[in-house]
């Protein structure tokens, strides 16, 4: 698994539950080191061991932890860059949803060896969508639940999300757009803050 993904999990644990919690997780997962490097590749089993250790440590179901991770990724100031990159996808939530189809390719433009799960958006009606998340490992769908829920807020849209599960390696999320302009949303400035 790409270091960026492992590193994201580490930062989520550190920023949300503290350095101590991460140290416990790293020990329990028997990593043999404490810090993931964003630009190195690690074995997939390591990621699984870390996630299991996080769920054990927090005493929370895995789906909940993964959704919190998704929320963290697009809302915590320490990882603001990611929210910005996703917001480039579209001027409103619907356009953003459609941009998800391109997300793995966009990610590869920046980091050529980063394989994100395949995302496929289907539009069933102007306010009804489904997103299929396909990856060798299950769980990305729950992360996407957190990402979608938080970015809907970011765009000021009111949505209803449902994780439908699916066969191994494929998770389906039902998305109902209740109101596109429900709230003000967060400001998005094209100009990047340097730093």
């Amino acid at each position: 698994m790409h270091g960026l993904i492992n590193r994201a999990i580490q930062r989520f644990v550190t920023d949300t539950y503290g350095e101590e919690a991460w140290q416990r997780v790293a020990r329990a997962a028997e990593l043999g080191f404490t810090d993931f490097e964003a630009m190195l590749i690690y074995e997939a089993v390591m990621t699984q061991r870390v996630l299991d250790a996080v769920c054990d440590d927090l005493e929370k179901p895995c789906a909940e932890v993964l959704e919190d991770l998704g929320t963290y990724l697009v809302s915590h100031p320490n990882v603001e860059a990611l929210r910005r990159l996703l917001r480039f996808g579209g001027v409103d939530f619907t356009e953003f949803l459609h941009s998800l189809n391109d997300l793995p390719d966009r990610a590869r433009l920046a980091v050529s060896d980063l394989d994100l799960p395949e995302l496929e958006l289907r539009e069933h009606a102007h306010d009804r969508f489904s997103l299929t998340v396909s990856a060798p490992q299950d769980g990305f769908g729950h992360v996407m639940m957190g990402v979608l829920r938080t970015l809907a807020d970011d765009y000021g849209a009111l949505v209803y999300l449902e994780h439908k599960g699916g066969p191994r390696g494929r998770e389906v999320i039902d998305i109902t757009l209740i109101e596109a302009g429900f709230a003000e949303g967060r400001h998005f400035d094209l100009a990047a803050r340097v730093g």
Partner: peptide, 30 residues
């Protein structure tokens, strides 16, 4: 984009500027 507070809506739908800005940020982060 900073000087004039430009947004996506200021560019033609076919304009690649937004994609370029995206790439600049993604590459910088990487």
């Amino acid at each position: 984009v900073g000087d004039y507070k430009l947004t996506s809506a200021d560019f033609a739908a076919t304009d690649l500027t937004i994609e370029m800005l995206y790439l600049v940020e993604a590459k910088s982060a990487a």
